[in-house]
């Protein structure tokens, strides 16, 4: 390491602004930091509020004026939630099981199918390659919910309504996941793949032994995005049996129970938030690595 790099390293420990970049005035930095603080406070508000309320005893929940944080934190709301869970018509554990199953199956399916499709698409110049990718890119431009009604018709024809498949299979077909995967695989050095081919590996062996280990950041990222969308699925038009409904739906029912349920509602909201945020925090450096390669190449 050169002395200059060492100096930069030392400087970064003392300052919040790590790179001693050119073109940065102190006044400007102060303004930027203030903006971040204000916006950050607004973004944090719902989380702090939910977390605070979840641990408030009953008398503090209806304190006037309300406070953000509890003074005498308690687990009453979580215990209340436990009681409510036992007394509900369809056991709450069933809703949780449904959500876990859908999230796990949908994420696994998306990662496996999307990477299987992305590998040839990124590396093999077969006829039709460009066309397929163009269609997939075009599909990024519209929201799946815009075609919810025709999708309903298709699912009805396939007898898929009111089954787990109605939620799992469309999640596997997410085109954003495929897009990210393809962009990431494109970065793999062709020499590595050719070397494997020369050593006698067929396309499946190359995919499993070479490509998959190398694109770990990408499949972790796909996992974050599919967990994010599947975990939060609430009431769906494709599902009508109570025992197939999701945890998020149950949460909205608890919260809709009125003012008396405020504490319980916040406790259950906190539980809902923990999962996707934890998954993101664990994988965030992989996500950043994947997103860096996600740009549209002109």
């Amino acid at each position: 390491m050169t002395s200059k790099a060492l100096e930069n390293g030392r400087r970064s420990k003392r300052h919040i602004f790590h790179k001693a970049k050119v073109n940065r005035s102190h006044a400007g930095n102060a303004v930027v930091f203030t903006c971040i603080l204000i916006l950050g406070a607004f973004m944090a508000l719902p989380f702090v509020y939910a977390l605070g309320s979840a641990f408030k005893p009953l008398n503090e929940l209806f304190l006037y004026p309300p406070r953000l944080l509890p003074q005498n934190p308690t687990l009453d709301n979580f215990i209340g939630l436990w009681t409510l869970m036992k007394s509900s018509w369809v056991p709450m554990s069933r809703y949780i099981f449904n959500t876990l199953l859908i999230t796990a199956a949908g994420s696994a399916g998306q990662i496996i199918l999307a990477s299987m499709c992305a590998f040839p698409l990124a590396k093999h110049p077969f006829p039709g390659n460009k066309f397929i990718f163009r269609v997939i890119f075009l599909s990024l431009m519209f929201h799946a919910s815009a075609t919810a009604i025709p999708t309903y018709i298709i699912m009805a024809k396939l007898h898929m309504l009111d089954t787990y498949w109605a939620l799992i299979l469309p999640a596997c077909a997410s085109s954003f996941g495929l897009y990210l995967m393809k962009q990431f695989i494109e970065q793999i050095n062709n020499a590595v793949l050719e070397a494997a081919e020369i050593d006698g590996a067929n396309i499946w062996q190359t995919y499993i032994r070479i490509v998959m280990p190398m694109v770990k950041p990408a499949w972790l990222t796909l996992m974050v995005f599919s967990v994010q969308s599947l975990w939060n699925i609430g009431s769906s038009t494709y599902i009508y049996s109570e025992e197939l409904k999701t945890f998020s739906y149950a949460v909205s029912q608890v919260v809709a129970g009125g003012v008396a349920r405020t504490g319980t509602g916040m406790a259950i909201s906190v539980i809902m938030m923990v999962v996707p945020i934890t998954v993101y925090l664990i994988t965030q450096s992989s996500v950043m690595q994947t997103m860096a390669s996600s740009g549209v190449k002109e």
Partner: peptide, 30 residues
Amino acid sequence: LMKRYRMSYVMMLPYLLLFLLFVVVPVFVA
């Protein structure tokens, strides 16, 4: 070329089938 890359098509098939079913076909149905 298509013959040479036939395995590539096989590999892409499962995803593309779902993609057709839940993304492309709904647009045309609509």
